[in-house]
Design a protein around this nucleic acid. Sequence first.
DNA 1: CAAATATAATGAACATTGTTCATTATATGA
DNA 2: TCATATAATGAACAATGTTCATTATATTTG
Lengths: 205, 205
Amino acid sequence: MAIADRKAKEKEQLKTLILNSARKLFVQNGVEQTTIRSIAKNIDYSVGTVYLYFKDKNAILNELHSLGFAQLGEQFKVLANVEKPMERLMAMGRLYINFAMENPDMYELMFTLKAPMAVLNESKKEEWDEGKSAFGVLKTTVEQCINQHHFEGHKAEPLTFMIWGLVHGMCSLQISDRAKAVHFENEDQIVSAGYEEFLKILKKL
Amino acid sequence: MAIADRKAKEKEQLKTLILNSARKLFVQNGVEQTTIRSIAKNIDYSVGTVYLYFKDKNAILNELHSLGFAQLGEQFKVLANVEKPMERLMAMGRLYINFAMENPDMYELMFTLKAPMAVLNESKKEEWDEGKSAFGVLKTTVEQCINQHHFEGHKAEPLTFMIWGLVHGMCSLQISDRAKAVHFENEDQIVSAGYEEFLKILKKL
DNA sequence: CAAATATAATGAACATTGTTCATTATATGA
DNA sequence: TCATATAATGAACAATGTTCATTATATTTG
């Protein structure tokens, strides 16, 4: 059935086209401004067509959300070269912060907006694989640190969550304009500066 | 001009009525579901009337946002009884987390949603007083800790931001369903558990 | 090849939002 | 009592997500 194959490929292509358009507009203009109509217009298709390929707007956001994790995962690959777990942990935080600061809208979609998570809640079976796997990478590193006798007396999982929360929190405050509003001496460096303080602490543990 | 006074009082009362209604609906149903129409209907006034008292929906959110800070400030008052800065710092984090877990929608409004911040951006002169003052309280405590020779080699402001980020981050991940999606052993205790790990670290510094 | 069928695409139409503003009602002052 | 100022109304508008009957295109069949 060569024809069916080709059709499947075409469908896949159009889906990708929609997704790429959505991503472009989304990164340019944010979630709210990225309307189904604007996506459709951007690729010269009708509104209805978009709905043939995606159940609703949340479904699109959910796929972009996955793309974001792929992108972050790509950047995390260099960490494989860092042998010492403690150094790897520190480098991971830096990469995470860099990603957040350079892709604030994508970051928001990945870690703040509820919309992409709503999709998972509907189909209850499905779990948040990207999240679990990303968290797993961090947790493994923390466990390796513990094996090397760092973090004396700590429990791996809550500690890992705390570290995630620490970097996420600073990024989140920055992206949501809360850090700016507080008026730091060096506004756009405050996240890095905060992370440096954390590193000082890490080196004592 | 007793009449003018009474009129001013009436205006103030209606404004408060709108605000209370908005808060009730907001805490019950979240931001999106709290429509101007639902607020108006709830107090038996017309849509237009709401707009006589508030410029737009963001203005309402911004006032709720302020009420949230008043509420949190109220809970922080007990901290005045904690003499030792280090203990006060630890208690502050706990109060912050409790507030976030018990008032997730309010917390989101205060520290995540961009809408209430948009009001500040319009009238550029106005700064985020509540934010600055809340951060100031935390920063002062951290400085007092430093004066008592804790946090050797740390800079007060970035360190304070880091600590804020730490508690905010965990709360934020929990409220945005990211923590849940990762499936911890003890899901609803993960924020507290994470904070406990932080306290262990604090005690070493 | 032509007709019948299946697949894909369309865009008008609906419901729901925030928001505006001409109109109506009410209260105040002359 | 009437003129004026103030307050309240709700219909109407634009923008959005979403649906679905209709149209267009492609595929299969006789």
